[in-house]
């Protein structure tokens, strides 16, 4: 099996890279990747870049040039205040919704259905079996919750915007790449899953109140737990 673990930036993969002793593998679509082995399986670590467009290009390039049977995206996310998730927790996606897709209905909010185009899906379900396995693995690494994720082209600029998105979509967290993964997985027939550590509360731009290190550590800790448990 070719398993990919992808993240927006190198820093979100560094612990996994060290644990798996992954060496530089090459470039695909202008995106860097690393390669390691896990038993009879190949594990690739790919850097997608930040944002939905870069992530879509990267994931597609990885899958189409190297090959991918399963892709797990890891990284950090901002939790919506009502979600119950707190900084340092881990969230596992059951679905991804693209916030801005469609006819604009408010700040950072689109309505995909209002476009009137039949194949526009604003919400895509992720692979259920993989989401279940990741949730079990995540419970070994931290307190973890599973549910809907929201992908945003632009992150919530203040608590008011986050509250509006929270009311509208009822997601657990917002991030900038997940929908790209979900869409690529759906179109290319690849099992995809997503795990993110909570670094901050959505809409809080005071980085002094963030904890990116804890978020990155917790999200990356899920990967070896998953490999040990589910990739024999």
């Amino acid at each position: 099996m070719n398993l990919w673990v992808v993240a927006a930036v190198e820093n979100e993969l560094n612990i996994v890279r060290a644990e798996l002793s992954a060496g530089f593998g090459g470039m695909a679509g202008g995106h860097r990747y690393y390669r390691a082995s896990w038993g009879r399986h190949s594990v690739y670590l790919g850097v997608t870049g930040v944002g939905i467009v870069s992530a879509a290009v990267a994931v597609t390039a990885f899958a189409c040039t190297i090959g991918a049977d399963r892709i797990i995206m890891i990284g950090s996310a901002g939790a919506y205040p009502g979600s119950g998730l707190q900084i340092g927790d881990v969230a596992v996606a059951s679905s991804e919704t693209f916030s801005e897709l469609g006819v604009r209905e408010g700040p950072g909010i689109g309505n995909g259905g209002a476009l009137g185009v039949s194949d526009v899906e604003q919400t895509i379900l992720l692979d259920k079996g993989l989401a279940r396995d990741l949730a079990h693995a995540a419970n070994e690494a931290a307190h973890a919750g599973s549910g809907r994720f929201l992908t945003v082209a632009g992150v919530s600029e203040d608590l008011g915007c986050a509250a509006t998105r929270d009311r509208h979509f009822g997601a657990l967290v917002e991030n900038m790449e997940g929908y790209a993964l979900a869409s690529a997985g759906q179109k290319l027939g690849i099992e995809v899953g997503e795990v993110r550590g909570i670094s901050n509360y959505a809409g809080n731009r005071d980085k002094g109140a963030w904890n990116l290190d804890a978020a990155n550590e917790r999200a990356q800790a899920v990967v070896p737990a998953y490999l040990r448990k589910y990739l024999q």
Binding site: S83, G145, G170, L172
Partner: peptide, 16 residues
């Protein structure tokens, strides 16, 4: 009411 489900193992829910 609008609900936002979050699934977690029962011990996590207990702690929360």
């Amino acid at each position: 009411r609008k609900f936002r489900p979050v699934l977690a193992d029962v011990e996590t829910l207990n702690q929360w």
